[in-house]
Nucleic acid binder design. Structure first.
Lengths: 163, 163
DNA sequence: CGCGTTCGTTATATAGCACTACAATTTGCC
DNA sequence: GGCAAATTGTAGTGCTATATAACGAACGCG
């Protein structure tokens, strides 16, 4: 069985089980640590992401890749990889998958014969538009406990943290 | 090769490469999405965690397990698994590793012959005390761009999100 | 006492990546 | 022009984390 099969895989890992808050248990310092808070929040948001993209085989890195390619047509796989924080071989597999799904095209660039320029196909652009809406909507629903101000504040603080 | 080898592994996955901000690239909606902001922040914090625990073979789930066992001696593997959000078999492997490192002990409970009660060994307690300090310290250093108020606010907002 | 349930355990499978090595191409330097 | 160095895409391999399924032992309830 050729290794390329793994690349074409469109099966997705199920989102991790939500991290239950066990009643009557002492969480000690965990509640004050950023790492643990971040992990819990991310699992929660991951659940909404899966809900928004159900049935399309789209994982978070794949979604990010679509957005980036859509907003920056013609960029190379290497740049895409660095945006995603993955190695070139990973970017390669990711693009292979999207090409197989006819969401993305590789086009030779005239000025540099080494690199491919990545662009969305019409289907890719259509899917991206749909998913952008759905992801934004489910995220907003999930964070309904936060006011618009709080939500913006949260994004701002997270940005400061990773700067 | 028996599967138990995997269990005894004390090698850790390297923290993922920091997600570089590529200059001159359009990030489109990503900057407003919670999922992407969370992911970036988590990678950043993961880096500090690795720094704090270097050389001890302690991964985030292992650290969480140590804290929870330390604060709730005698709890079962199944409860531990649900706190961590992992399956029972995963909790099993995790505890196997900690027992092999002499950080944790399994003791039969007299009232229920099915379950083990987990407790820290003296070494486990010592290591935990050290790591708690170091993790808290490196997290604070990493989040130096945030004021104490902002940091507390961030933890509060994250908690609301995963509630 | 029998039956469903829970716990720990074991074995197996798989996704996601990293790492390495390699071929093609371009670029820099002489 | 020609050759070393750098960059890109590609292919193969391996490892880690974790899920899933199956099983025996112990428990609880009727």
């Amino acid at each position: 069985m050729p290794a390329t099969l793994a690349r074409a895989s469109s099966r997705r890992r199920r989102a991790p089980a939500p991290i239950a808050r066990v009643a009557g248990l002492d969480y000690d310092v965990l509640d004050e640590l950023l790492g643990y808070s971040l992990r819990r929040a991310q699992v929660a948001i991951l659940g909404t992401f899966e809900e928004a993209t159900r049935g399309h085989g789209i994982t978070p890195p794949r979604f990010t890749a679509l957005v980036i390619i859509g907003a920056n047509p013609g960029l190379s796989q290497a740049v895409l990889g660095s945006v995603l924080g993955i190695a070139r071989s990973g970017a390669m597999m990711l693009v292979d998958w999207m090409v197989a799904q006819a969401l993305v095209e590789r086009r030779r660039k005239p000025d540099d014969g080494r690199t491919w320029g990545l662009t969305l196909t019409p289907q890719g652009a259509r899917l991206l538009a749909t998913l952008k809406q759905r992801v934004a909507r489910t995220e907003r629903r999930r964070s309904a406990a936060l006011s618009a101000r709080e939500r913006a504040q949260l994004v701002r603080l997270l940005g400061k943290l990773s700067a």
